[in-house]
Simulated scan of single mutants.
Amino acid sequence: MGVIYLVRHGQAPMHAYSTDPVPADAPGLTDLGVEQARRTGLELARQVPAFTAAVSGGLARQVATCAGVLAAFGEVHDGPLPEHVVDPGWDEYLIPALPGGPTPDMYRSPAAYQQVLDAALLRWTAGAADSDETYAEYQERTSAAVDRAVELAGSGQTVLAVSSAGTITALIARLWGVPAQAWPTLARAMVNASYTKLLVGRRGITVVSMNEHAHLSAADVGLATFR
């Protein structure tokens, strides 16, 4: 039986959700996001002796989080770290491209941003096709990425996969039979740099835990954020 640890990216700066060009040297995470990734790496090091593979989406916030988790993991374990492989299949849907989706300036108001995003996601899952990627195409792309991670997990292997709230919960929704229209409810509950544990066996994928973040929300830590 194999294991996949799905980690949501740490807190990202506002430019991550913009359609404007981003300088090549722009950070993928805020300072808080960097610390969140580090804390998650240390937490996973308490539970896992080694990762046999590490993948992330190609978005800057996902790549930076994976690198941060692995670096912190390496602070605890002396063994070699796996090569960090970028798989764009784990990328999040493009928020600015959603029909009627939120604009970057709304990001400063979390409640307003979420309300507009949820409405846009409902239209998208219902079949609105005026975005760069339809919901069906998104499902196909992310499902293929999951299949590749399952192959890496194999028997007795432990895989680290870093993605985003939408992509992680889209997988959970499929596994649990949650209707597409209810999927955003799962996504908005995801904490930055939380982790979800999956077992991979002959019967497929089993969700063992979801959105674990006690290492971030403890009173003496206070690093838990949703955006």
Rank of each mutant, 00 (worst) to 15 (best):
M14L: 09
G28M: 04
E83R: 13
V191G: 08
P96L: 07
T167F: 01
G58V: 12
V208Y: 09
R46G: 06
E140K: 15
D20H: 11
H84A: 11
E151Y: 15
D220K: 13
L160C: 14
A24H: 10
F51K: 05
P104H: 11
I205S: 05
A187W: 08
L121D: 00
M190P: 02
L94P: 00
A12L: 02
R108K: 13
A170I: 06
H215L: 15
T142A: 08
Q11G: 02
C66E: 08
Y17S: 05
G41H: 08
A126C: 15
P21I: 03
K197D: 01
V76Q: 04
L160T: 03
S163K: 00
P110M: 08
V150H: 03
P21D: 00
V85K: 05
A26W: 05
A193C: 11
V34G: 03
Q62C: 10
T19Y: 09
W176A: 11
R61P: 00
S131F: 09
S109Q: 15
P49I: 11
S18Y: 09
Y113T: 09
E140M: 15
R227F: 10
Q36D: 03
E133K: 12
A218N: 11
H215P: 08
G204I: 13
G201N: 15
I205P: 06
Y195W: 15
F51A: 00
D147Q: 14
V55E: 06
V150N: 04
A26Y: 11
V86I: 12
G204M: 13
H215V: 12
L198N: 02
L81F: 02
P21Q: 03
T158K: 12
L122E: 11
Y5F: 15
L42E: 04
E35R: 14
S143A: 15
A12C: 03
Y135N: 06
E137A: 15
A45T: 04
T196P: 09
L42M: 08
H15V: 02
G166E: 05
A128L: 10
A173L: 02
P184S: 10
A173Y: 08
V34S: 03
G41Q: 06
G156N: 08
D147M: 13
A173P: 01
G68R: 08
W183C: 15
A112H: 06
V86K: 01
P184K: 06
T125V: 14
Y135V: 07
R46N: 14
P110W: 11
L70W: 02
M210P: 06
S194V: 07
L160G: 12
V207Y: 00
Q114H: 10
A71M: 12
G10F: 01
T169L: 03
W183G: 07
T206D: 14
R141H: 09
A64N: 04
A112L: 13
R174G: 06
T134E: 01
S217I: 15
A126K: 07
A24P: 05
A170D: 01
A214P: 11
P102K: 08
A45D: 03
S163Y: 05
I172T: 08
P96I: 07
R203I: 06
L152W: 07
